[in-house]
Design a protein around this nucleic acid. Sequence first.
DNA 1: GCAGAGGGCGCC
DNA 2: AAAAGGCGCCCTCTGC
Length: 556
Amino acid sequence: MDRALALDGDRVRAVAWHPEHGRSGQVEEFSIAALPARLAEEPADTRWVWADAAELYPRLLRAGTRVSQAVDLRLTHQILRRARAASRSPMATAADSAWDAPPLPLDDPGAGETLFETAPAGSLDLAEIIAEHERQQHTLATLPDPHRGKLRLLCHAESIGGLIAQELNHAGVPFSAAHHDRQLRELLGDPGPWGGRPSRMEALCQQVRAALNSPQLNPDSPVELIRALRRAGLQVTSTRQWELEQLDHPAIAPLLEYKKLARLHSANGWTWLDTWVRDGRFRSDWVAGGVVTGRWASRGGGALQLPRQIRSAVRAEPGWSLVVADAAQLEPRVLAAMAADEAMAQACRGADLYQGLVDAGVIETRQQAKIAVLAAMYGSTSGEAGALLPRLARAYPRAMGVVESAARAGERGEQVTTWLGRTSPVPGQWWQDAQAGAQQPDSGREEERRARQAGRDWGRFTRNFVVQGTAAEWALCWLGDLRRRLSTIRDDEGAAPELVYFLHDEVMVHSPAGCADEVAEAVRAAARRAGELLFGRFPIEFALGVAVVDSYEKAK
DNA sequence: GCAGAGGGCGCC
DNA sequence: AAAAGGCGCCCTCTGC
């Protein structure tokens, strides 16, 4: 049984909704404060339906209440809306005019194509929630097989992801501010007295100024820096690390060191620590489905870019462990499975796919295998990568066929879909303009070049979209199934493990030390389940690295 | 004084 | 030497 919830000020309205009979029962109304108790009365298999997990779930979590499942209408809408619009998507074959009915209440009038391009819409009332849910369920129910099953799985997993994002926000990553502070002082020196440069950075800055004979130089300004370097006789076109590394000059070593520290200072220095770390937890705002490909995003704190340099400050609490797991070479494995490429799947058997390619005699060295595989998924064609691609194409024509045809579709401006049915956006106006420009009677070589370039660029995007997006689907299923398994694990004292971090193909669980091994096994079991959910009996292995550690730095 | 663009770099 | 997908965030600089 579904039960829809709507928030209206500090009141909650709820009504039961049966998937086959439509709405049923009386509308109840109660205060927001009574919601946790009301949820606790409901059978555990109730599927809640709400506009958006971010609206209600944080309050429930603060009140100590968790829900096992809840349809997130916003996330589901996002998937279905774009799928419906795509000409070659599974949705296109569904005879469903209901989905064409615009504008849906979740849409902000005048907004761009995706809901995420706009500020969060206001909350929906109960009638709107029921109507939206009915439309979504109807759309899903009328799809032909196998799209129905796949898209249902995707929407379900996405909604669970919406819950998990809020649960991660609530939990936070265990983080030792004292340890981080010690590390900052070691690397950067003492913090500047009035927000100035820390002492080691200041010393390096002076060295650079002296070596370049530019006493006023601000090394944070690329314009000033290029000017000063040129004055010193160095022909530079940018201040990028790789370009500076090529130069032979006494200013370069301290400059590179300075830039490294400046990055640490601005991105994860004391200001960051004060802003994002509180009570021993680093808290960001996770955004499930925040990226077009289905990957997650984060708002604030740079949760998805936590530098390796500072990961030693991520520490389990005393008596607890971190169970850190990452999926090895997830994207090429996903590609092998979605292409049903048995030869490539054979090379995936083992912890190291790249070595698998070497052992299969496809490519000579592991390094070359890595370059070739990344090139296949990202669409690079030049240099060493380009030269290696024909080897892959000969050995694994099915897998290469999948990414090649996705690229060709993108070059034509068409949309592509992931394995479960997430659809890529249409190229923007700039792309249409470039194509139209080359069609004009007076268009010249420059216009044609631009159109071809835009086509190739979009082809690289769609090529990567199918792989990155399907990998995100695998990871979402992995995460969702792991969450279910964790809910039954406790140590001898009744303490429960909790998910605290998710990074595309990597998860972290903060677990009582006494059940950490059980958690590690759950992580492995969830990965196997994710593979089955997506690819059924197709024999593809998703190798995991799993570590039980006290600090994140020891995980890899 | 603020918004947005671009450079640069961290993560996958 | 630069290349090849997806991001977020900080800094500087520009333009209003």
